[in-house]
Nucleic acid binder design. Structure first.
Lengths: 326, 326
DNA sequence: TATTATGGTGAAAGCGATTTCAATGACAGG
DNA sequence: CCTGTCATTGAAATCGCTTTCACCATAATA
């Protein structure tokens, strides 16, 4: 492996000069030229490990996600990766498989060492999370949840759910049921359910608490909850779900119970999943700019790391949403 | 930041002793005890950057994927991440967004520095790829394509497509069309189309070359190709697709042209996408163990890195498949 | 008793960069 | 001619760890 010293010798300069050449310090034109040639000749590339040791920066960003195979998360990471690549960083990905403790574990692992910053695609935020975030040695940005005092990029789930509920209340006749997710997930659990309920109520069609079920983000859980709901309350005519994925399951359940093609007009979701949209022609749902949230969060993080003028502070950013197919 | 020297001083030993303690070298019980306490007391964690510089190993594996938001890829990375986590490595993810040149770029970037090994989720393999793979300084394993002389984990697309074609030929009456992908993708393009054609032919119902179209992996491209196909050859009664995602698009096209619900019985795909399965009840498709391929590839790679007994060689591994819903 | 092993130990030499520092020469102004 | 800038330069000190090496006990063997 050719090292800096070799290049320096070949070019007849000191390795300090080579380092300066590489990093844009004082260097005369002719030496720069000789160094350039020497580098090309030897095919030298600098060891990022040595560089990291000396400078303390790895140009690595840790990204913690709850589940990699989900459309929303992969769109978010696509956005993150896009910015990272453009700005000379790389992504260290940690998948927690929906286990909150592994989230903390990675938070620990990451900050201790190899990464310059962290993007946490958050689901549940416990007190322990808050503590871990506060005491984090490297800058960190959250996506998807709004946490006081932490930098975050999120969507207004309450507001979106309110609008959806309000709009649906007017368009659906008959009973509306709701399949949510754990309220420990503040955004997707608590906010969406409360917003939806408030929206229905505001439209004069309050949600019957007996028609609320809990799923676990998966298609199967949506299916199961919907089946149970349909047999417990056969007169339910519409099932709103906290995620598009669960909506897909509910749709399937309705088709099975009520006949093929029935489901399409009787479910709503959250997230505007492309697959679901294409296959059903579009159920009522909320479109979030997932990719955008990845982009914004990463820019925010990198701005503080690189000390970009005027953009230095980590802040909190609420992104917009759109109802679709309502 | 507390360093090894601090721990050593506190424990009254040399830093060499601490290092040995950490890495399992000779150390007496009482010193081990003292070191252990000192570490707990100071909250010392060792700098992986210094360690990396010294040992030349980063415990990082580079993973190059063509597109992060696709079900197959995310299942593969889930498998990779699973093994990596269990064996003390981390994943450096690079997303090429289907650009073959960025694949080469990352191959270059990775091998030069921070990673100990590479997993390439491959699509197109050009000569340049082959060269890059051959001259790779760190071990590399491919997923999804079979490349002579390289370690790879893949599925037998030809065989699977053959079986699917053969089975469908007997069950469909009327004309069968095919929407494929670029033949530069040996596995998903060339092998699947050829296998499918051969299967149909073997069943006495050869594919009309005029009924072949090309998509680009996306749902929209499947939709577009199917629409075009249906208007160019209105008597087509079944559309086989090279991927489930394109099949979803084709399904939508058929529903639009022939009426809702028609599509479900008139398309087939590849990959057994969970969403599609749930929403349609299941179209004929091929189930591949994507997660397994990630697991196997990573184990293979890590075995050579860690020098596991008996399992040392990088080899090539062909995984099985299953037809579903035929 | 003389001699090997054998478990333990710390000093010190790297790993390959970056960065401080003092020194240099050139050049403008006085 | 002297002095003060100012752009350039290389030697050398780190960064924090691993690992060789020489060395010391002590126990086992002849």
């Amino acid at each position: 492996m050719v090292k800096m010293k070799d290049v320096a010798e070949l070019a007849g300069v000191s390795s300090a000069a080579v380092s300066r050449y590489l990093n844009g310090g004082y260097i005369s034109a002719d030496k720069a030229q000789r160094i350039k040639q020497a580098i090309e000749l030897t095919g030298y590339v600098r060891s990022s490990q040595a560089r990291a040791l000396r400078t303390g920066s790895t140009k690595l960003i840790g990204v913690i996600v709850p589940k990699i195979n989900s459309e929303s998360v992969s769109r978010i990471t696509a956005g993150i990766g896009q910015v990272l690549g453009r700005r000379g960083y790389q992504m260290l990905l940690a998948n927690t498989d929906n286990a909150a403790d592994r989230e903390l574990e990675y938070l620990d692992l990451f900050q201790n060492h190899p990464v310059d910053g962290i993007v946490l695609v958050a689901t549940m935020i416990t007190d322990e999370h808050r503590r871990a975030i506060d005491s984090c040695r490297v800058p960190i940005v959250l996506i998807g949840q709004h946490v006081e005092g932490a930098a975050c990029v999120y969507h207004d789930d309450y507001e979106a759910a309110f609008e959806l509920g309000h709009a649906l209340a007017g368009r659906v006749d008959g009973k509306i049921a709701y399949i949510g997710v754990t309220e420990e997930d503040r955004a997707a659990g608590y906010d969406r359910r409360r917003g939806f309920e408030a929206g229905l109520r505001a439209a004069g069609n309050p949600l019957d608490a007996a028609l609320i079920r809990l799923g676990s983000f998966t298609l199967d859980s949506g299916y199961g909850a919907a089946r149970e709901l349909l047999s417990a309350a056969p007169d339910v005519s519409f099932i709103a779900c906290a995620t598009d994925t669960m909506a897909a399951g509910a749709l399937r359940a309705i088709d099975e119970v009520r006949g093929m093609g029935e489901g399409i007009h009787r479910v709503s979701g959250f997230g505007d999943n492309a697959f679901l949209r294409a296959l059903t022609g579009g159920i009522p749902t909320v479109h979030y700019g997932y990719l955008t949230s990845g982009v914004e969060a990463t820019n925010m993080l990198l701005n503080t790391l690189d000390g970009v003028e005027g953009e230095s502070g980590l802040k909190t950013l609420k992104l917009g949403h759109q109802l679709v197919n309502v």
